[in-house]
Structures are given as structure tokens and as C-alpha cells.
Design a protein around this nucleic acid. Structure first.
Lengths: 158, 158
DNA sequence: TTTTCTCTCATCCTTTCGTATGATTTTAGT
DNA sequence: ACTAAAATCATACGAAAGGATGAGAGAAAA
């Protein structure tokens, strides 16, 4: 059954061919006796097979495949920021330090950070110092820049 | 002459057709006398016109074009950062100040900025002070943050 | 020519930041 | 119970950063 389906086209052509030959036979026995009708008979055959050829051709011919590449632009927003947890753990930055770091990046002073976290200025200074060392920075501005490059901090976007 | 060229194909088909009919005639006079050879004659006509039909079809018919659309994904990273010229002009930030600002954002100290711009530390301090006032900031970290929010500086992306 | 702007540099002073060091307390894991 | 890491706080000093102010040089606009 599957093979029948696979060779469906070939079978179709074969049937069509057989049908044409049958017509041929029919015409042969019908008109052969009448000698003078031969030209008409030949003409019919010619037209018939001409048409058959045209039809066959359209079926047989493989369609030209034209491949068109549609360039689909996929905009990737670099805003889909994912915190680089690995960097944080490898640099051994503690949660509290990270907290301080993010407030630093917002432009707060040590005193302001201390106030908002309800700890002393000295505590923030210690965190700050540790952060600078862990982030290999000499200044807080550099620390912030490095942290953003390492995707430890989200980029500042409007 | 031009018309000849324009109808070149049609003429070709006409000539081919005429040629085939000529063969038909020839075969007619050649084999008609021999009655028993009629089947062969009919077969030849059939094959001939079948082939002619196929050939004709291939010439006449427009080639079947099957268009295959393939979506090609093009990743576009959207860090298409555009400097907010308006903000710069409304805040009256001078080119030199902008230069200092961008170096600041990279984490350089005033001394390092002075060295890289071949000016004195005092000059950079002046620029820095002016920048802080223009950007409504109390600290350089805040100035940088504000500048990035105003799209005066590009965001830090890896 | 005069004015304005930008860039430059300086001085004095204050504030903030950063380093070094030590100590206490809490939390979490062994 | 012991240990290690984290968080807290402190003191003291030195290094940057920031504020206020004045001033000179050069270019461009009025």
C-alpha cells in the first residue's frame, strides 16, 4: 500500500498512456476500414499525443527551486542584564559588600550609605576598602566601572 | 527586422510545426501503401508528437518557480547608544569637560586625567567642579551616574 | 573693538575617600 | 564546641576630591 502511494505519479502516467493507446486502438478499428479517412485519423493521433506531451511535460518537469533568504532581525537588548553570580563568588564579594557597591554606583557618599544601611561610617569604609581590593581598583569610580564590566552591577540605562 | 526578433519564438514553433507536418506527409506517402505497416506509422506519429508536445511545453510554459523562504536570524545587539546632544547643550557642558567626564567614568583619578590630557591637576579640578555643578552632583560618582542617565555618557557594557 | 566663552592654572581650605590595623559580635558550617 | 566567614565598629593618617575665588590667554561672536 505504501509503495502504491510512493509510485502514485508513475502509475498515473502509465494509466494515462494506456488510456491513450486504447483510444488509438479504438480509432484504428473504427476508421481503418475507411482508407480515405486516414489523414483525419493521423491528425487526431498527432493532436492527442501533442496535448498528452504537453500535459506530461508539465507533470514531469521539476519545479525550479528558488531559495529566498529572509533576513529576520532579532534585536537583542543588552538590557536583559543577568547578574554574574560566578564573578561575585570568585571575587568573594559578600552580600553586604554588594549592597554597599550598588549604593556606591548610585553616587552615594560613604556617610549616606552608612545612614541608609543604619551602620556607622567606619563600617562602610571597611566594606569600601574590601571592595576596592576585591575589584582590583584604586578608586570607587574604578570599582564601579569594573563591577559593571564584570556584570556584577547593572548598567546605568535611562 | 525588429519584429522578426520579437516574434522569434513564435516563428521557431511555427517552423517546427511545419517540419513535423512535413514528416507526417512524407511518412504518409512512404508507408500508406503498405497497409500492414500502419500501426508502426501511427506509433511513430504518436511518439513524434508526444516528444514535440513535451519540447513545446518546455518552451512555452513559464518555468515553474518554487520559492522557498528561509528565515535567517540576524542578531542585532542593541547598544546603539546615541549621545544626547541636547542634554549636553542645555547643561552647557563644554567639549573639554565632556572629555574629562568620560575619563572620570573610566575610573581615572584627577591626576591621571591631567596626565593623559597634558594639563595641570588644577585644571582638571576646575573642570571637575564645573561638571559637578552642571550635572547637579555632589560627588564624581553621582555625576557619572547622572550623565549616564541623561545619555551623555555611554553605559558600561562588557 | 569689545564682549563672551572656553580653557587654562593657581591658592587656600574643607570634606571625603582610602589604608592599615585591631577588635567584637553574629552567623553558618564542621 | 570549634572554626571560618561576615559584619560590625574604631582610631589615625595620608591621599584624593571638592569648593571658592581669582586670573590670564586665545578664539569666536557681537
Amino acid at each position: 500500500m505504501q509503495k502504491l502511494k510512493q509510485h502514485k505519479e508513475i502509475i498515473t502516467y502509465a494509466v494515462a498512456m494506456a488510456f491513450l493507446l486504447l483510444i488509438l486502438r479504438f480509432l484504428e478499428y473504427r476508421f481503418l476500414i475507411l482508407q480515405h479517412e486516414f489523414e483525419i485519423y493521423a491528425g487526431i493521433i498527432a493532436i492527442l499525443f501533442l496535448l498528452f506531451g504537453i500535459w506530461l511535460s508539465s507533470k514531469i518537469r521539476k519545479p525550479k527551486v528558488e531559495t529566498v533568504f529572509i533576513e529576520k532581525e532579532i534585536k537583542i537588548f543588552k538590557n536583559d542584564f543577568i547578574i554574574n553570580e560566578k564573578a561575585i563568588s570568585t571575587l568573594k564579594i559578600s552580600p553586604r559588600e554588594l549592597e554597599v557597591l550598588s549604593l556606591m554606583a548610585k553616587g552615594l557618599s560613604n556617610q549616606e550609605i552608612a545612614d541608609s544601611l543604619f551602620v556607622s561610617l567606619n563600617t562602610i569604609k571597611t566594606h569600601s576598602s574590601n571592595l576596592l581590593e576585591k575589584l582590583d581598583a584604586k578608586r570607587r569610580t574604578q570599582a564601579i566601572e569594573n563591577a559593571k564590566k564584570l556584570q556584577i552591577l547593572a548598567p546605568t540605562l535611562e
